[in-house]
């Protein structure tokens, strides 16, 4: 690229090659800015999605009807158990559900980490949970948790493509720019947990 400059000082810069370096630097600035902004945007989207998902999990509790037998007493809490989920979502839910109630019961958030695939061990850890949110579990752990949820009348909310329609009752997904949820009606029926029709009106079905 040959650039002819009329100005003497610019001619001087051109002669010693510094002008080319300057032009290259100037061209690099927007590119660098774009990459930084993209990284920042990605971080912001992740935060936003975490907030929306946390809100969904909390709001599910308002439209789910558990059998009376799952609560030890009329004043027992609704326990939302976050199993091996990311720290950001945990933080949002812990802060967002403080002093909140659903169906006249206080919401309690429990953070659970599963250490093995042993059903008995997993069952002990999950005892008392009414709503389970699981994310990055291996297939075996997911299956154990799913079985426990079916047997213990808990609503299992999954958040991966792998669990959709298989090892979850409700499954969150991102479609386009929106968070949507699928309901595995067969599993829901087996679990004995009911979801109000008003919620099911816009839920997607994960059954084939």
């Amino acid at each position: 690229m040959v650039v002819r400059y009329e100005h003497s000082s610019l001619l001087g810069l051109a002669r010693d090659g510094r002008l080319v370096t300057l032009i290259r630097f100037i061209l690099l600035i927007p590119l660098i800015t774009f990459f930084i902004a993209s990284a920042q945007g990605a971080r912001l989207d992740a935060e936003k999605i975490a907030v929306v998902k946390a809100a969904y999990i909390y709001k599910f509790s308002k439209f789910v009807i558990w059998p009376d037998s799952v609560f030890p007493s009329e004043t027992s809490d609704i326990q939302i158990c976050l199993v091996d989920t990311d720290e950001q979502l945990n933080k949002v839910l812990l802060l967002g559900t403080k002093q909140r109630q659903s169906r006249g019961r206080i919401i309690t958030i429990r953070l659970i980490q599963l250490e093995n695939n042993n059903a008995e061990s997993v069952g002990l850890k999950l005892t008392g949970c009414n709503l389970l949110y699981v994310k990055e579990l291996d297939q075996k752990q997911q299956s154990v948790v799913f079985d426990w949820a079916i047997d213990n009348h808990a609503l299992l909310v999954g958040d991966t493509r792998e669990t959709l329609g298989v090892n979850s009752i409700v499954n969150l997904a991102i479609e386009g720019q929106r968070v949507v949820f699928y309901v595995n009606k067969e599993a829901l029926s087996r679990s004995g947990v009911q979801i109000e029709a008003t919620l099911l009106m816009f839920a997607k079905s994960s059954n084939k």
Partner: peptide, 15 residues
């Protein structure tokens, strides 16, 4: 109102 509770909570205006 009764049928709109979930839609209002989950902001599903279309429903």
């Amino acid at each position: 109102g009764a049928n709109s509770t979930a839609a209002l909570v989950f902001e599903e205006a279309g429903t």
